[in-house]
């Protein structure tokens, strides 16, 4: 650390050769950014010209890009979207906990836990195989039909249950992959210090595993944010459903565009954050790899 600072201070004036080099580099940087700008403009213009000159464009503009309908439907779709956000915010923490527990259950080797382990394996196999939409419909229509006492009947709760069932299976696999990347020598070191299996997991394996799986987990979050729209099939009035109501009665599809835009606005920050974390992790590992 201190070496770098003194280097900076005592560094002699740059030679003419280095100054020339830096001047050329600056010029190249300016040139590449102007090329990027120009090519983006050309590309966007081309797309715009192509779309607006297509034979169906006037009709599409009317039904999908109607400013009046945009403004009129926005409050209702936005209100519906709040339901999507709520479902996401409730489901996500539960998914993280359930996913982690399932991943840990799969790692239990003691004979007492045998049923738990089998249950975890069967659960992940089943729910990774069934399409999310199907899980939602089975839970949404099937669970209330059982007429068991204590089983919730409101659609939002049922939707959350279905999403938790579907997504925890994926998240469990992500956690398990993360746990597998921690080298066995770390466990050997922890156990040799007298830590139990549980303590070694908690203090040594999981902290390292979780750090490594944050980018793929965030990726699943993004996916979940979108899939909250699937609960519209069991009657939850969320953004997609609101847009559908408008579209069906007024024969205008602009509300769909409104809903799409809201989803994009929600997922973009998450996607950028994921990129940032991945890039940071790659930098940490350095050019030589882990």
């Amino acid at each position: 650390m201190t070496d770098e600072v003194t280097d900076e201070v005592t560094r002699p004036a740059r030679s003419a050769r280095q100054l020339e080099r830096e001047r050329i580099r600056r010029r190249q940087a300016v040139r590449s950014s102007s090329i990027a700008t120009a090519s983006t403009i050309v590309f966007l213009t081309l797309v715009a010209v192509l779309v607006t000159n297509s034979p169906g464009w006037p009709r599409v503009r009317e039904t999908f890009f109607d400013p009046e309908w945009f403004v009129r439907s926005l409050p209702d779709v936005l209100q519906g979207f709040w339901t999507n956000v709520k479902i996401f915010l409730i489901a996500e923490p539960i998914i993280l906990v359930v996913g982690l527990l399932v991943a840990l259950a799969r790692g239990l080797r003691a004979p007492v836990f045998f049923p738990l382990r089998v249950l975890a394996v069967v659960y992940t196999d089943v729910f990774r195989g069934v399409p999310t939409l199907l899980v939602i419909m089975l839970v949404g229509f099937g669970l209330p039909a059982l007429q068991l006492t204590g089983v919730p009947s409101d659609e939002i709760t049922l939707g959350v249950i279905a999403l938790v069932l579907a997504y925890s299976a994926y998240v469990a696999e992500v956690f398990r992959a993360g746990i597998d990347t921690v080298h066995p020598s770390q466990i050997a070191a922890a156990r040799s210090l007298g830590l139990s299996h549980g303590q070694a997991m908690r203090h040594v394996v999981l902290p390292q595993a979780v750090r490594r799986v944050i980018p793929p987990l965030l990726n699943d979050f993004v996916s979940l944010q979108k899939d909250t729209a699937l609960v519209s099939t069991i009657g939850v009035i969320e953004a997609l459903r609101q847009a559908q109501i408008y579209a069906a009665s007024k024969f205008n599809y602009t509300p769909y565009l409104v809903a799409a835009m809201l989803f994009i606005l929600l997922t973009i920050p998450m996607a950028r954050f994921t990129d940032y974390l991945s890039a940071r992790a790659a930098r940490r590992r350095g050019p030589g790899g882990a």
Partner: peptide, 21 residues
């Protein structure tokens, strides 16, 4: 009880195996 036994024995490995986090 293996944990009880390991409490009484220390071990150092070729590749250090410090906990990086």
């Amino acid at each position: 009880d293996v944990d009880e036994v390991r409490k009484r024995i220390g071990m150092v490995f070729q590749s250090y195996n410090l906990f990086p986090h």
